[in-house]
Design a protein around this nucleic acid. Structure first.
Lengths: 303, 303
DNA sequence: TTTTCTATTTGTCTAGGACAAAAAATTAAA
DNA sequence: TTTAATTTTTTGTCCTAGACAAATAGAAAA
């Protein structure tokens, strides 16, 4: 039926999985997996099933497992492990959130949009983000990694959420007298969604935000912070962004940032940074955490 | 003053310039540029000036120059060449657009936002995108490549525009009776802005859109198109996305797509695809072009 | 002019080695 | 027991240098 009968070259696998070429080759050498075929020209060709398995492996490695233990194991085992990780975090979907997953699977873009919009209206921006969107996003990610959701369905979800949040943030009243927070992600980190959610929480608390988006070099962050007279910087770090390089970058930002500017670090990966951030770096490991922190901040200010 | 006195390792250069590691090494071997130093461990360390030059080279290569002719040449010459390319396209900034560039350089986020919003109100979505945003985006890209605009200033611009367009698109009345267009970019192509502008034009013409965002594999596109009962697919291809792989992907999409679905291809890179797309693929090489095409479509329908 | 053929250019892949930095395991001290 | 310092294992990323197909430019023929 389809012309592309199911195998990809190494660059495509890197794009699809986020695993660098060098790592793919070295895993093959060390663990015997993946085990690509070869084309006429001796180049590796990866069957799609192996690529799917690699996606699972990637998620597990990102969430703390050692490649040692997971590369080459049966997809079923991996799926089980992945689900265990999810349960650990206590992911429990509300029925509404479940309905959205269902609508995504049905490719019903209107329903996804309207359900999300309805939930936002009912719960208000902050509760919507903290209680519904955060667990839903995790669930979508997991469903994507284990193949229960097509790539384009996951993409559609991201787009819809991004747009909805952008709109909601714009609606929120702004207190222009307050110094803004500067929002961004570190170099190599491309996930926008986490950043948008952080922006939503800040905005809901009346803190104006200037988002300069994903993938910003350290020196640029510092420069932008002073240039915009921001009160501080908030960085979002996704599960796969918790690399040693990111940890170093965070420390680097703190070192270059004037003492009177605050530095917030959040996201799925923030809690797993090694070496652990220290010294005037405020780490929050969930959006709930961030919201509470802002509450106490508010109280201190009004008191 | 700054701790990072000005040299990057190869992975950072890849991220900053978009030039793959392999290509950086082979350019060094062939043309003697870039000429990185080495750290204690024998690894390449690229001085920031060379990275800046590489950014210029990248833009030139993306716009059709051969590496042969531009790699290793003086930054000043490159800048001149780049400007010549710009002039060819007839980039002439309105005074308002110029004011935005100026505001960006002053890091005045509010002014950027308000000026953009004002222009949108005054000219309407379509004229705003076609006459103002398109040339402005090109100018920002050029200014960034030649170092006249900091990276974070360019990022801020993208974020603001993205948000503004998202909002404007949401405001537009939707005709739900019409089959929607499916919008996306091909794998490896991460530029959102072009896509958003296309979406804006379609929406302004009353065509509902479902955007699944950047970086979508071919089979996913086809699947999504049928799943959402879309009238067709519109792909946006940026200057640096006009690779042979992209050209093949376009043909591939056409081959897998049912005959009754349309396929539109646009963006800076669309006109430079080799092998040139053919057979029921509608290429437009500027947003003006797209807008006109939609006009005639409208007339045919009402006639 | 357009088309066909040939030469050059260019990006991306390969192998297998190397090694520092991160994480885990072990030992020593409190 | 817990905490801190040490050793061992694991892991990702970089290295060299070669190869070649696909893309492009230039020359020749129709």
């Amino acid at each position: 039926m389809s012309t592309t009968d199911a195998s990809l070259h190494i660059a495509a696998v890197e794009r699809d999985t986020g695993i660098p070429k060098d790592t793919l080759r070295v895993w093959e050498r060390r663990y015997g997996f993946p085990k690509p075929g070869r084309n006429d020209h001796g180049e590796r060709t990866y069957p799609v099933e192996q690529v799917a398995t690699l996606r699972l492996v990637k998620q597990l490695v990102d969430s703390g497992h050692r490649p040692n233990r997971v590369v080459g194991r049966d997809p079923e085992e991996l799926r089980a492990l992945l689900h265990a990780v999810g349960d650990d975090r206590g992911v429990e979907l509300s029925t509404e959130a479940d309905a959205i997953l269902e609508a995504l699977r049905r490719r019903d873009a209107n329903e996804v949009r309207e359900t999300l919009r309805g939930l936002l209206m009912r719960h208000g921006l902050e509760r919507f983000v903290v209680d519904i969107l955060a667990p839903l996003t995790t669930a979508v990610g997991e469903a994507w990694a284990s193949g229960r959701l097509a790539i384009h369905e996951e993409h559609l979800f991201s787009e819809q959420v991004d747009r909805l949040l952008g709109h909601a943030i714009g609606q929120q009243p702004g207190y222009s007298d307050q110094a803004p927070m500067l929002l961004a992600t570190l170099p190599g980190e491309l996930h926008r969604l986490g950043l948008r959610m952080v922006e939503a929480i800040f905005t809901a608390h009346g803190v104006p935000c200037i988002s300069i988006g994903p993938d910003v070099p350290v020196d640029q962050l510092v420069d932008a912070c002073s240039g915009h007279r921001a009160a501080g910087i908030a960085l979002s770090i996704s599960a796969c962004g918790a690399t040693p390089a990111a940890a170093r970058a965070v420390l680097d930002v703190r070192a270059q940032l004037p003492d009177d500017k605050r530095l917030w670090v959040g996201g799925q990966g923030a809690g797993r940074l090694r070496p652990r951030p220290q010294g005037r770096i405020e780490v929050f490991d969930s959006l709930t955490d961030l919201a509470e922190r802002l509450d106490t901040d508010d109280q201190r200010r009004t008191a």
